[in-house]
Write a protein that binds this DNA or RNA. Structure first.
Lengths: 195, 195
DNA sequence: GTTAACTCGTATATTCCCGTACGAGCTAAG
DNA sequence: CTTAGCTCGTACGGGAATATACGAGTTAAC
C-alpha cells in the first residue's frame, strides 16, 4: 500500500506541500482558490492538477490530512482518571486543531457530498462521545440530554470560540480557559430536580 | 417617510415577495442565486433588479427585514422577574427566528462590509446582554467569563442546534428543551471555587 | 545515461453568476 | 384615458474560477 504504481520522491514532496498549503489557506478562507493554494505551495497550478483532478479531491485530501494529524495528537491524550480532568486534557489538545481547520470544515461541507464530512469526522467524535459516556456512568456528566447533542454542542462551542478569536473579540490567551469552563458547565449535571 | 417618490401598490407587493423569498432561500443556502430568488418570489429577474441594484442591497434588505421581525417578536417578551425564567422565555421566542435565518447570516457576512452584520445585529445582542448582566447582578448567572463570550456562545449554541435539526440529528420537538437546558447550564455560576 | 516521471507555462474551453441595455406590453393612479 | 410607473423577456458583456490540451524542459530512479 506504500507505492501502487511507484511515485517519485519529488512528487511526494509536492503533494505534501500542496496539502499543507491547502490546509493552511482553506483553514482561514473556505473560498480559497486553487491558484492561490498552488502559489502558496510553491508549485504551478498544473502540477497541482497533476495530483488532484478536482477541487473536491484536493479538499478531501486536506481534510483527511488534518483529521489524521488530529488523530495522532488526540490519541496521545490520556483519557483515564476523573472524566472532568480528562475532558480538560482533551479540550486542551483539541483546541489548536479546531482553530486551525475551522473553515476547512466549511469548505468541505460546500464541496463534498452530504454526510461525507461527518463520516470522515467519525473517529474524533467517537473519542469524545466515549469519554462523555464514561463520565455519565461515573455521574460526572449529565444524562438529561441526548449524547449526540452534547457532542455536537461541544463542537459548536469550539468552532464558535475559534471564530471569536479570529474576529478579535476574544483574546487568544484566554480562550483555552474560557472554552474548558464553558464545556464543563455544559456537561455538568444540572442541579436540583430542575423544578 | 411613507412614500418618498411615490411607489405603486404592485411594486410594494413585488418587493415584499422578493424579500420574503430572499429570506427563505438565503436562510437555507447562503449561496442562493438571484435567479433562484426571483423565481421563488414569482417575479422575473429584471423586476428584482428594478428594486435592488445588486446582490448586496438584496441581502441587506433581507437581513434587515429578518431582524426587524425579530425585534417585533422579541420586544414582546417579558424580561422581568427571575432572570433564568426570563431567559427561558427569550430563548423560546428566539429559537424560531434563529433557525429560519441561520444561513442568511452567513450570506450577509460574505457580502456585506466587515462589521456591518454585527452593527445591524446590535439590538438583539444588546437585549440578551442586558438580561445576562441583570442576571449576573442578581447572582443567577456566572461572572467568571467575559460577557461578550457568553452572548456569543448562546448564539453559537442556537445556530448549532438549528444545524442539527436541519441535518435530522435532533428532533424538532425536543430542540427547545435541549437548547434551554444547555444555555441555562452555560450561564449558571459554576459550583465551588473550582479547585 | 536512458527512461519514465514529474514540473509547469501558455492557451483555451466551459461554466456560472452578476449586472446592463433595450424595448415591448401591462397596470395602477389621477 | 392618459401617463407614469412597473413587469419582464431576450440578449449581451464581463469576471472569476474550474478544468483540459499541448508541449517543452527538468529531474529522479534504475
Amino acid at each position: 500500500m506504500t507505492t501502487r504504481t511507484r511515485r517519485r520522491a519529488d512528487a511526494e514532496r509536492s503533494i505534501a506541500r500542496i496539502v499543507a498549503a491547502a490546509r493552511e489557506l482553506l483553514g482561514r478562507d473556505p473560498a480559497a482558490t486553487i491558484d492561490e493554494i498552488a502559489a502558496a505551495a510553491g508549485v504551478g497550478r498544473m502540477t497541482l492538477y497533476g495530483h488532484f483532478r478536482n477541487r473536491v479531491e484536493l479538499v478531501e485530501a486536506a481534510l483527511t490530512d488534518a483529521l489524521a494529524e488530529g488523530e495522532r495528537t488526540l490519541s496521545a491524550v490520556d483519557l483515564d482518571g476523573d472524566p472532568a480532568d480528562a475532558l480538560d486534557r482533551l479540550l486542551a489538545s483539541s483546541w489548536a486543531l479546531v482553530g486551525e481547520s475551522s473553515s476547512l470544515l466549511t469548505a468541505a461541507q460546500d464541496v463534498l457530498p452530504p454526510g461525507r464530512v461527518r463520516q470522515l469526522h467519525g473517529a474524533p467524535a467517537a473519542r469524545l462521545e466515549d469519554l462523555v459516556r464514561r463520565g455519565q456512568r461515573a455521574g460526572t456528566f449529565r444524562t438529561d440530554l441526548p449524547i449526540g447533542w452534547l457532542v455536537s454542542a461541544v463542537h459548536h462551542l469550539l468552532h464558535g470560540a475559534a471564530e471569536e478569536v479570529r474576529a478579535g473579540r476574544l483574546d487568544a490567551a484566554d480562550v483555552a480557559a474560557v472554552v474548558t469552563a464553558s464545556v464543563q458547565s455544559l456537561l455538568r449535571p444540572p442541579p436540583a430536580p430542575q423544578k
